[in-house]
Nucleic acid binder design. Structure first.
Lengths: 232, 232
DNA sequence: CTCTGTGAAATATTTCACAGCA
DNA sequence: TGCTGTGAAATATTTCACAGAG
């Protein structure tokens, strides 16, 4: 099914970041070798990844930074705006809301939610934190594309369900737990999992990263070797 | 080189989390099917992942939760303590320092560092935030195993270099930038990259996750299909 | 009869070599 | 000549089918 490897998408995001960096430094041209070096992958890989989506370079010349950047922005779907709600406004949720860079590509935080009386009602980034119970009402008047989930793991599945009920198409899950892509344990209803059809879940799990790091420190030979060089 | 897939390690972390959950609920036995369902992968995958490291089950019976948990803890290197410093104590660094769960497996924050006068000297989690310049001195008197990097991307490479100079074996990079596993632009010195030999870098990149999510919302058919069921 | 452990087959991904265009 | 774009080869990973232990 995956005709384009998932890892390729992660790499495209990296290439885009590098192109932004080059543009800031007024570098106008680059090459698969240069991108590969900066991204820590092979030049073969860069060319193959780009080839999945089109032909963006000039043989013998390389790539024009603004053009390749524009094309990657388009490919990744960053040339439109995304309305985001954050569920869970503890320290992590607040750090996410205030992290610079999200607004670079028109990711807009339109709603912030929590259940804790200590947080509901507070102002964060110019928005008033609402109560989770108001989420569904909120989505009746606001188009919401994705939800960021920064609640404790034991509340993550229910909060994810609420997001799906509210109609979001994607969830960025920061909780250290697997979000089941189906409605679970809803008394009296057999299977409402159609709600989940087409909902994308991406995970950003810091505790998992920490544990992988521990493993690879103890087993460094199992870590992916550095990218092979292109022959000179 | 990678005789054990990197993805398998991520899945082991997930299995371990599930086992902790089962143990809390006093469930004493499980199976590759049960774990697979909870982890969102195939039962084949669970058995193969575990088989890389040993034989932990009983044929016809399944797995004993505390035993499998203990074995995964051992495999992942979580049965020892890890001394961690955090570099960058802005909102994200503080959220990381206070995030519950890190101490479950003896990950201990032993030092916190920043460069901003507004943060240096503050108390976080019972530690006084020190200045980056004091990092090397600090590591002379404290054994430090890993560093968490929560600085702005333009400072990430230098901060990573400081961590490597300080002797850490692994870096968990939260900055949206590629850490080059070599000493760059150090005037007068040709190649000190030996310092970097064996240093592991793992990335936890929330902005990248957000962009991948945007892509897959627009291209849901490219998302890895749900795990196939084991035939009944 | 059940469910694990595992070699072998099927897929997926990466690497490579080189054709092709500037 | 230089560097991209791409089919084909090489690897890596996942899936499968079934032998084997309880």
């Amino acid at each position: 099914m995956a005709e384009i490897p998932t890892a390729a998408i992660s790499r495209l995001v990296t290439y885009l970041r590098i192109l932004e960096h080059l543009e800031l430094q007024d570098v106008s041209r680059t090459s698969s070798n240069d991108l590969a070096d900066r991204a820590g992958v092979s030049a073969f890989q860069v060319r193959k990844d780009l080839a999945y989506f089109g032909r963006f370079g000039t043989r013998g010349m390389g790539y024009t930074v603004p053009i390749l950047k524009r094309e990657l922005v388009r490919v990744l779907g960053l040339n439109r705006s995304w309305n985001v709600v954050i569920v869970g406004m503890g320290r992590l949720g607040q750090a996410i809301a205030n992290y610079p860079g999200a607004s670079d590509y028109q990711f807009q935080y339109v709603g912030l939610f929590d259940v804790s009386p200590g947080v509901v009602g507070q102002q964060v980034r110019g928005l008033t934190v609402g109560h989770m119970n108001d989420l569904t009402d909120f989505t009746r008047t606001h188009a919401v594309d994705m939800g960021f989930l920064a609640v404790p793991p034991e509340r993550a599945q229910d909060a994810a369900q609420a997001l799906v009920d509210a109609g979001v198409k994607g969830i960025l899950n920061f909780a250290p737990t697997v979000i089941q892509p189906r409605t679970t344990e809803r008394p009296g209803l057999q299977d409402l999992s159609d709600e989940w059809r087409g909902v994308i879940v991406e995970n950003v799990d810091f505790l998992a990263g920490m544990k992988r790091l521990a493993f690879y420190i103890l087993n460094p030979h199992l870590k992916d070797a550095p990218a092979p060089e292109e022959p000179a």
